[in-house]
Design a protein around this nucleic acid. Structure first.
Lengths: 249, 249
DNA sequence: CTAGAACCGTGTACAACGTACACCCTGTGT
DNA sequence: ACACAGGGTGTACGTTGTACACGGTTCTAG
């Protein structure tokens, strides 16, 4: 148990020690991670099998296990490698900082939608993810907020970006799996439209008939502006209401 | 293809036709869906196998296929059944309405965290999910918003709730899989704390030392209040800036 | 300079998954 | 009475992660 967890920590935070003996390795940890990211980018997280990664490297599945303890740890490494591609939030006014952070994460999710399909909570955090988050905290560090308020503010932005990202990622995956674009998919749904009757779905039919679904606003841009507006209200208010968790599961 | 999609629509929107001939069925579509939800609630979405569901019903795996076309469609049915457990948003002031909607969805996610691990975008929407969303649109229908603005406002709330829900769901799943509570997990991470040095992670060590991570604010309550504040700024402003998508993937 | 340890990659094998298929049994409409 | 529609079972296949034993390669200790 303990050794397992310590091993995972070392795996992410310390560079792999290179051996002094044995034949020269054709593979390496970074090459495996790189290849795995490429596979996930190209064909989605479901296509990421050990056999497939090995194949793109010209080796067999079991060869990967010399460089990576298992698939779960490979995912850890992939996640942190992708975080490493982002820019840390620079110092500056809080709103610009949070916006920068949000855009970086959003760009990351767009480039690697599979990131959102990986469970993140208990996954071991790596150094890149941590430093990026640290820089985001720094963006709101000089507003006189309590420490827990700093965390809450950044977390709120993260949750929003995660939310938009997830629906985007789902869309990408669905398009890849079915080979049908979002529009074509919904167009082919005559059997569904039959159930769109004004008595059952009054608002939806109204929005539909007035073309509201055809000229949608940008989900990310719209939502981000609102979230930052809301945080501004909080940050600029004199007395800030503290919200403590009561039964937070 | 076409018949496939039409079949999925009928599966969700029309009650299953009951047969006139043949032996009395021990199972039924609703019993299968019910059992599947119970399994997912108890042991997570990964434990939801056809064999396992059948077992809890006292049957074999293949028997399920008489009542459900396949696992994917079973998931569709589970999702819509859970939506059916929520209250539709009542009429009233917009802010109370959106708050009600957010709390309903949040409660739904807390009761069934696996909902957030299912891909939602291309999943066939069922009648319950649709009517709930319709009622949410209705909450902001009388503010003089353009149709696409109505959609954007509700979508923003949804994205936030999805975001909080996801981290909550991840936490629940991790606790179940490892049998270790969130606190114990992080406590056992000495090897990780060694890397928490002020030069690498200045903000995090500062927040940590001042105990900010130990008295966190309620993520849902805090974030929801900010998001609604931000939407209020938008709704009450005279000229609303329209944000159109440019290259939305 | 040589023996052996350390290391790299391979091949085989297993359990668990969704589900296609062939089968037998049960009950109703003609 | 009988055909047949429908319910449930047993077997089997392909795919997944990975444990294990093995053979080849290179550096280090004696």
């Amino acid at each position: 148990m303990k050794s397992d967890r310590d091993r995972s920590v070392r795996l992410l935070w310390e560079p792999p020690a290179e051996p002094t003996r044995g034949p020269k390795a054709a593979l390496s940890q970074s090459r495996v991670v790189e290849a795995a990211i490429k596979v996930a980018d190209a064909d989605g997280i479901d296509a990421l099998t050990m056999r497939r990664v090995a194949e793109t490297l010209g080796n067999t599945a079991m060869s990967l296990y010399r460089h990576v303890p298992g698939k779960s740890e490979l995912l850890d490494l992939m996640v942190d490698a992708v975080w490493g591609e982002t820019e840390p939030t620079p110092r500056g006014p809080w709103r610009a900082g949070l916006e920068f952070y949000a855009r970086q994460v959003w760009a990351m999710y767009r480039a690697h939608p599979w990131m959102l399909q990986l469970t993140t909570s208990r996954r071991m955090p790596g150094p890149h993810a941590m430093t990026r988050q640290d820089a985001a905290y720094a963006a709101v560090s000089e507003l006189g907020l309590a420490p827990e308020e700093i965390v809450a503010v950044v977390t709120t932005v993260s949750h929003f970006v995660d939310g938009v990202g997830r629906t985007m990622a789902d869309r990408v995956q669905a398009e890849r799996e079915t080979g049908v674009s979002e529009e074509d998919w919904w167009d082919g749904r005559e059997a569904l439209w039959e159930h769109f009757t004004p008595d059952r779905l009054p608002m939806m039919t109204h929005i539909w008939n007035s073309g509201g679904f055809e000229r949608l606003l940008d989900e990310f841009e719209f939502g981000l502006a609102r979230v930052l507006d809301g945080l501004a209200v909080f940050i600029e208010s004199e007395e800030r209401p503290l919200v403590r968790p009561q039964t937070c599961l």
